[in-house]
Computed example of a mutant assay.
Amino acid sequence: MVADSGAPPGAVDVILPCLDEAAALPWVLSRLPAGYRAIVADNGSTDGSAHLARELGATVVEAAERGYGAAVHAGLLAATAPIVCCCDADASLDPTDLPRLVRLLTAGPGGGAGGGPADLVLGRRRPVTAGAWPAHARAGNAVVVAAARRRCAVRIRDLGPMRVARRADLLGLRVTDRRFGYPLELVARAAAAGWNIVETDVRYLPRSGKSKVTGTATGTVRAVRDMSAILRRLP
């Protein structure tokens, strides 16, 4: 466990959407900062992920409806801490980066010096190796982010899967997408609500196992399609 948590015990829950991540879970859960509770939202795993997560001390909730957004929403409903983080369970993101995002949420840039606290903190992925983020996935992300910047007037450069916000505020946004469009709808609704959205760099590592979303060109196309549909539905 990591000592520097950036928050008092019980103040932070970490939602880990999970689909067949047994190979990655031991590393991911071992990297959680002290006082951060893991909520593994299992989305139909067949490799024993849910059982393993329980053995490793995580809270496990079943997300019966398939889809990334469905898993995140199930984890959010199960969360009880005032601050909620979201982080992929495939070892592509290091949970030790979370306290830095939490501090931006609670204190603002520079420990509260200027800018004030954020309402939503997004982790901008910075690949540590050339193969950590495939070219087709980077291209798909760039297309969606560019559209979001134009449509929602948000100054972001990534729609990455690591983010931090207050649980009550997230529930108040009433995000409805249960597929790959969830992150974009969240940002769009947050922007429309006037949230202070802050972005900070996080390390992006080669994931463990095969990606269900952006590891293939087909998965990237599905994600871009779902996110583009979100933009078309915005008022």
Rank of each mutant, 00 (worst) to 15 (best):
N43K: 12
A38S: 05
R66C: 07
V72M: 14
A64H: 14
D42N: 03
A70V: 10
L56N: 07
R37H: 07
A53N: 00
E55N: 12
Y36D: 03
H51S: 14
T59A: 15
A38Y: 02
A50I: 08
A53F: 03
G75K: 03
G67W: 12
S45G: 00
V61T: 13
G67D: 11
G69Y: 06
T59R: 14
L52A: 04
A34L: 09
A71T: 06
E65Q: 12
Y68E: 15
G48L: 08
I39S: 11
Y68A: 13
R37M: 05
V40F: 12
S45W: 02
V40D: 08
T59N: 07
G69V: 06
D47L: 11
L52M: 02
A41D: 14
E65V: 05
A63R: 11
A34V: 02
A58T: 02
G75Q: 09
D47F: 01
D42Q: 02
D42R: 01
S45D: 09
T46I: 04
R54L: 08
E62T: 08
G48M: 04
R37S: 02
V61K: 03
R66E: 14
H73V: 15
A63D: 09
A58L: 00
G75Y: 05
A41N: 06
A53S: 09
A74N: 15
G35A: 05
A34I: 00
A70T: 13
L56R: 05
G69C: 01
G75S: 10
